[in-house]
Each structure stands twice: as structure tokens, then as C-alpha cells.
Design a binder for these strands. Structure first.
Lengths: 227, 227
DNA sequence: TTTTGTGAACTAGTTCACAGCT
DNA sequence: AGCTGTGAACTAGTTCACAAAA
């Protein structure tokens, strides 16, 4: 698959290129974190080999993943840490900041709203939404305002919300997702167990606690059988 | 690969069989949830075809996944819902109840401790752990006691903890995981971003919020480039 | 020399399609 | 007839190994 001879733009835009697998994009995120650690430690360049050893990754895979997006390395040297980090942030769309709304101001929603780890990565929690009168108008400890879910569309437009996190009871999930989709939000992170459907063109990513716990339970059950 | 002609035990134990992929075990968990829905709706039998259509799954994959563990279906009929559900609960080790401890009584730890969805599936949150004097001895709203992390080993033995959930700040995560491993816990669900290492024989499953959000951000960034 | 970027080889996972059971 | 269980075919993902660049 031939590549353009000279790429001029900063981070090549991958015109109508092959689709990038989700496994790859997840790893880009991991690489970015590794590079942030290295940059903070003052490391200037790193080879795929060294990166792999230090963070328990595979060198060939790192190179392949990065090669989808351009030729960032220098033969004989490796990658410039700061430069590659900047490229990855751009590829992941983090350079402009990502605006996030959280649906559901229960325990989980409030915990997520106040979780600090996002901000530094380029995410900003701009609003919480709930249906309960007594919660609406209040703020999370961290200061995120709780809106009436009926104002969702309005707030999305005003605050330019790009991602919605679903942290409502399971029974309400599909309805809330529909509301979110209907307001034009194209990316959803779902914490509700159970199947949710979204139309084509909307990206839904689910983190299912129960599935993960049950997978661990399976591991334990198997271990007992065979040991 | 020939299979025993007649399996006598309730749920065949899969002696030294081929390893089951994690993707398969995750799906077992999904199937279990589907069957619970069907059973609650009074459905007695279901074919892989119907199950697949109703829950957006693949019929051949359902059959293959189940076939790792025995011959649960009846040709011409399909699967008996209640029976298959019981088998799956046994395979996943849920029939005896799974005892879970949560490390970190911050927003997230407390939210998880009080999340009701687990109980019905066979999980029980038996303890919270923290290092802060002022939290130790208190309880979550749902009534889970917060222990000193220094008592972890003791409580694990007394309460027969099988799974630990890591909900502490990222900087403390590896240390807490080491404590958990050291106390003999063999299954860990990690919410901390970043690499964690565990010895062989311990199963670590990570739910990385940042990776998921960044994957969504990538999707959005790509969409803008090409549309 | 060192290390990238990448075709080729390999491994894992999914789907097809059908023999065989009920 | 209807549906499972399962080899075979296919697709996706990973790792190898090496030519080419610095």
C-alpha cells in the first residue's frame, strides 16, 4: 500500500485511508501516557524497543500503530518524545480540548464529574444532567452545575458538548441515550449494563462493570477446578 | 477435537481443555444477562438464532461459545432458558457468591460500594479500605464499613475476599495492588489509569476511563477530517 | 551501527455451512 | 421440519524479519 512521497501537513490527515482498528486507537492512548511520563522525566528520544521494554509493550506493534498516521521516527535514533507526544495528542483530537457532559448526578455521575485525572489530558466536564427537581441547580463538590435533562439540547449547543457519559440507572439508559443522540452528540461513554443501540455515525463505548467482574469470577472458578 | 460421548456431571468441568479466550468469557456474561431478561419475561426455550436477533448477537458465535463448556442445547428446540442460565451462573462461578473488597473510599470507591446492580448477580461488597484516619470506621451510605488498609490481610481472611477493586489515586495504585496480591487475592479490577503489574497467577482487569474517552475523541477527530 | 517502516508469516477470532440429532 | 455442534473458510490482529535510511 503506497504512501505519499512527501507529507507536508504537520500530522498527515490520512485522506480516505484504511480504517484504524479500535485496538490501535486504544494503544495510541497508552503510548501517549507513556510519552507523557518520559517527557516529564526529561527523556528526549526513545526507540520503539526501549519504549516497549519500559512499559511492557511490543516494539513492532508500536511502530505499526504509529505508521498508520505518518513517519514520526528517525532511523538510527528512534522517536523524539515531545514531538511524538504532540502528534499523538493531535491525532487523538486532544489538542483542542474535549467537552464532556455527564448524564445522571447519582453517586457515579458525581464521582466522575469530580475526578481530576481528565483535565490534564484535555477533557473538560462542562455539565451534569438529572431529572430530580431537588438536584437540578445544585453543583457537584468540584463545581459542575446540575441541569434539567430537558434542557440538554440547549446546553449542548451553548457549551459545545461533544461527548456524553451515561451514568443513570439501567432502566433509563436507552431513553437517555436517545436524548443524547437526538441532540446531535456523536460520542457516548456508557456505564450502564445491558444492550444499548445507537444509530450509525454515533460511537458508543461501554464500560460494563458486571461483565468485568464476572470475567474475574470465571477466572477464579476455573482456577479452583484445575489446581 | 472429539468430545466425551456422555457427560455425566451437571456442568462438565472441562478437564485440561483448550484455554477459553477472554472475549468468550465476556460474552458468557452478556448471554447470562440476556437469559435473565428472557426468564423474567417467562420465555422457556430459545434458539441461538432468536437470541442473536433479539440482542444483536451472532448465532454461530453463541453456539460456539457455549459448546466450550458442554452440550446445553437440544436440536430442533434450542436452549432451555432457565437451565442454561443456571449453567452459565455456575460456569462463571456466581452460584456461590463472590466477595469483593474496594480499595479507596473516595468518590469512586463509595459510588461503587453502593451500586446495587451487583448484588442480584451474585457479588457482595464486603469491605472498603482507605488510609485516612477520619474515614476509617465510618460507613458508606449503603452501610459498607471502611477499614484501615493495614488490616487488609486480616479482613481478607475473615471475610473471605476473592476480588479487589482498585479505586485509589493513580500514584498509590501499584502499592495498593501489591498489598492486595500479597494478601493472596487472585483477581483485581483496576480503575486506575496507567500500567500496573501483577505476578503470574493473578488476574488483573483494567477499566481505563482515559483510554476510552480518548478513543471517543479520536473518533470525533477523524469524523471531522473526512466529512 | 542503530532503528525505522513494512511486507510476509503467523496466530487468534469470527462466520459460514452443513452433517446429524430430535 | 428445526436447530445444534462443529469442521472449514474467512477475517482481523500480531509478530517476525529485513531492506532501507540516518
Amino acid at each position: 500500500m503506497p504512501r505519499e512521497n512527501k507529507v507536508v501537513s504537520e500530522t498527515p490527515a490520512r485522506g480516505g485511508a484504511e480504517p484504524v482498528s479500535e485496538l490501535t486507537t486504544n494503544r495510541l492512548s497508552v503510548y501517549l501516557r507513556c510519552l507523557s511520563v518520559l517527557e516529564a522525566a526529561g527523556v528526549r528520544t526513545i526507540s520503539s524497543q526501549a519504549l516497549a521494554e519500559q512499559f511492557h509493550l511490543n516494539a513492532a506493534q508500536i511502530r505499526k500503530d504509529l505508521a498508520y498516521f505518518g513517519e514520526f521516527g528517525v532511523r538510527g535514533i528512534g522517536y523524539y518524545v515531545a514531538e511524538l507526544r504532540r502528534h499523538l495528542r493531535q491525532i487523538l483530537g486532544l489538542d483542542r480540548g474535549v467537552r464532556v457532559a455527564i448524564m445522571g448526578a447519582g453517586n457515579l455521575g458525581l464521582a466522575l464529574a469530580d475526578y481530576g485525572g481528565f483535565r490534564e489530558d484535555g477533557f473538560e466536564i462542562v455539565a451534569l444532567f438529572d431529572t430530580l427537581k431537588e438536584k437540578i441547580g445544585r453543583r457537584s463538590r468540584g463545581g459542575v452545575l446540575i441541569h434539567d435533562v430537558r434542557d440538554f439540547k440547549k446546553v449542548v449547543r451553548r457549551e459545545n458538548v461533544q461527548v456524553a457519559v451515561i451514568a443513570v440507572p439501567a432502566a433509563a439508559a436507552q431513553l437517555v441515550v436517545d436524548t443524547v443522540v437526538n441532540a446531535g452528540v456523536k460520542a457516548i461513554l456508557n456505564f450502564t449494563p445491558g444492550a444499548i443501540t445507537v444509530p450509525r455515525g454515533v460511537k458508543l463505548k461501554s464500560m460494563d462493570l458486571t461483565v468485568s467482574l464476572e470475567s474475574l469470577s470465571f477466572f477464579l472458578a476455573q482456577g479452583e477446578n484445575s489446581e
